[in-house]
Design a protein around this nucleic acid. Structure first.
Lengths: 202, 202
DNA sequence: AGACTTCGGTACCGATCGGTACTGATCAAC
DNA sequence: GTTGATCAGTACCGATCGGTACCGAAGTCT
């Protein structure tokens, strides 16, 4: 017999939660956690405060879910880059993806993981810490990938996977800040290319 | 005859404006423009709201003056680096200074010019734009310096001063974000050293 | 002294913050 | 058709936001 499809009792939701989350993500991306008020958010999402609280919990949880969506959407280049066959290709794909994601037409300039919250007062401290953890987790993923590359002989002996990962993340973070400062995609692609010139030879 | 020392009429100020501005700068540095409330600021400055408004105008002007102080204080390595004799030394001094300023013990991690405001809602938009202009001005100073270096034959023919300047600023911005993520001074110094490996040969 | 100006402090302004109680309408299960 | 849960929406909560009016006290000038 087929698995019983869960039949939620009561009136079904009248809006698309995914679409609403996408809109919220954009607002956080553009205005940061503290700069995005519930009025801004719900107006962009096209729903009332009540519906938002019922569907997403509160502002903090909404931000967390928006960040998840960001990770799987605009920032999915990160996970994709890790699957490239060589360390150099990982690095290239990561920085190129960072340039493209930070300068995507129709999206806010920069990276939600950076400008969502770098410094904050008391109420925004949880979001700030979560973003710092998010960035560090991505750095750790790169590091693990480069450790494997070193084991496989894909990096010269003596290479420091930790340094390589942090270097890439530093450049990507800088690219995000530069995009928020108004730098163009072409400018930043040249910067990424230059940054890769110091990559260890394969 | 000596110039008449201006003799301000009325009761003289009872606090040190420079000291108060220094304290305000720290708060903006740590919590960002939007995250720093007047209560936070005046408490740290040790003065009342009234005194703050009389001495500095309003929150926006206080921020602008704090940024000036930051430029001449913690960020003075930027102007200092421009006076180095060779392009390579400029680049090295700039990145090393960025690492040190972003990880100074007893100061907030990172750079006020970055985390002061990257994304903001309506009320913080002026501060955000001012910081973007601040970063771009520093990039322009580097670019002008490298143009001169190219003219002087201090850079290989075909070098792109604009790219070199943007590259340095990108790495410095990334270093600031990484410092705010908890990276140590040693880690970031290694990143800076690696970034300089792609610098054109002198 | 007397005039004048700014001091530090309190108490308050309207607006907005994140979050919630309550409402009548709406839809599914029985 | 009845029951009951969730819907979207309004109106409101206390707290805090940036900013200001007003105060008596304190200090420097003529």
């Amino acid at each position: 017999m087929e698995t019983r499809q869960k039949a939620p009792i009561g009136r079904p939701r009248g809006f698309d939660a995914e679409e609403a989350l996408e809109r919220a993500m954009r607002v956080f991306w553009e205005q940061g956690y503290e700069g995005a008020s519930l009025t801004d958010l719900t107006r962009a999402m096209g729903i009332t405060r009540t519906s938002m609280y019922a569907a997403f919990g509160n502002k903090e949880e909404l931000f967390r879910k928006a960040l998840e969506r960001y990770t799987e959407g605009p920032a999915s280049y990160g996970a994709r880059a890790l699957r490239e066959p060589t360390a150099r290709q990982v690095a290239t794909a990561f920085l190129n993806g960072s340039v493209r994601a930070s300068t995507r037409p129709g999206c806010p300039s920069g990276c939600l993981g950076v400008q969502g919250s770098l410094a904050a007062g008391d109420p925004g401290r949880a979001a700030r810490d979560e973003l710092a953890a998010w960035r560090n987790a991505h750095t750790a993923h790169l590091r693990d990938r480069f450790r494997r590359a070193a084991d496989e002989g894909d990096l010269p002996p003596g290479s420091d996977p930790d340094l390589l990962a942090r270097y890439l993340m530093t450049v990507a973070n800088g690219i995000a800040v530069q995009a928020a400062s108004g730098a163009s995609r072409d400018d930043l692609q040249r910067v990424a290319d230059m940054a890769l010139r110091s990559w260890p030879p394969s």
